[in-house]
Design a protein around this nucleic acid. Structure first.
Lengths: 209, 209
DNA sequence: ACCTGAACACCGTTCAAGT
DNA sequence: ACCTGAACACCGTTCAAGT
């Protein structure tokens, strides 16, 4: 019997379900959402006429909306912590849907929210006294940390097949650490490395008093 | 009529077709390969028993086969230059097919050539006195530089829309540098940053004489 | 307006059957 | 050994029909 008295679906309900499935299986399907919500898959099209692509796009909008650039502009906070905040918030936004990364980076950046993100980091680098001619290169490096780490977040755990046991050094390293923390550690090191790089590029030594 | 006199399929023929489809549509399907080769899709399973996963793995093997790891193991070369060689050769291999990156990354690594790459870098890090418990994290950071930069190589030029002129800091940075050299500069800075990071993690200062 | 159910064109994979 | 063709369990999407 169609049309129950109380509404079963909405844009937000669908997006929430998609996010839940992504969290569980690193991916989602239209049929999966339908099943999860106890609804016929075709019903989704009454709320998202653009189909699966629209779901992906709406999710991305949701992610970028939460980036708080104001905090990154606060001149009272040292630029080191602001670089860290910039990388972490940008990466967190991107990593929520690793499958969308090729779509994100394959296109020219022309939307305001994204340009605002890069304007913020350019201002930050200027403040850290990175020479103007090196700023674009540093931004590309930061980009690679952000997207590389976000992509890494979509990798399987374990990343390396543990049954292939002819790699003594690699296995020693894996045994000594936590593979589930691999991605987080990689991001932290990437940020550390980026900060050291910026420091080394600074035209004048930062003031110490 | 089955079984033509001359063989229609082989491992290499299938892999070539997959690469061609990836180049064209950023992805490939079993059915697509079958159609492209004028063959029934089920026939592929006589040559690649592992199905689609085996195709992905074989592609990865092909990319990495040409990496010369011997040079990276030469103990006479300082580890700094060997890290640089490792990143550059690995990235060069990956960047041959940027479109394949998301496909390659989503799967567990269990082929010998790829594992050999990571074994080499693990040995290098041990030699540079990076604590065992930090090595996996550093490897993840290097991974992000490699894949982030490779992905960046597939980005449009210019990356940022020049007509959106409300971003003064970003535009100043772009004007002061060469956008066409953006990716190369990003990789160089990434390597510099990685070397500084490894240096800072070393358990004992490296010998200076 | 909101949801169903049938339908369509895909997808990966298995397997008995033909040569 | 190599390929076909039918079959199965999926996938995204469309659309007429019911309330």
């Amino acid at each position: 019997m169609p049309r129950p008295r109380t509404q079963l679906l909405s844009r937000d309900i669908i997006l929430d379900a998609a996010l839940e499935l992504i969290g569980k299986h690193h991916d989602f399907t239209i049929l999966g959402i339908g099943k999860h919500l106890g609804v016929n898959p075709s019903s989704l099209y009454h709320h998202l006429s653009g189909g699966k692509d629209e779901i992906v796009n709406s999710l991305r909008e949701r992610f970028y909306r939460n980036i708080d650039l104001a905090a990154l502009r606060d001149p009272r906070v040292p630029w080191q912590s602001r670089i860290e905040s910039w990388v972490r918030s940008y990466r967190a936004a991107v990593a929520q849907y690793p499958a969308a990364i090729p779509i994100l980076i394959g296109r020219i950046v022309d939307d305001r929210p994204t340009l605002a993100i890069y304007e913020a980091i350019a201002a930050l680098l200027a403040e850290a006294r990175v020479p103007l001619g090196s700023q674009v290169g540093v931004i590309a490096m930061l980009d690679s940390v952000v997207f590389g780490s976000a992509i890494d977040a979509g990798s399987p755990v374990p990343l390396w097949d543990p049954t292939a046991d002819t790699q003594p050094r690699l296995h020693a390293a894996i045994a000594a650490s936590d593979d589930s923390a691999r991605v987080a550690a990689g991001l932290t090191f990437g940020i550390q490395a980026a900060i050291m790089l910026v420091q080394s590029l600074a035209e004048e030594p930062t003031a110490e008093r």
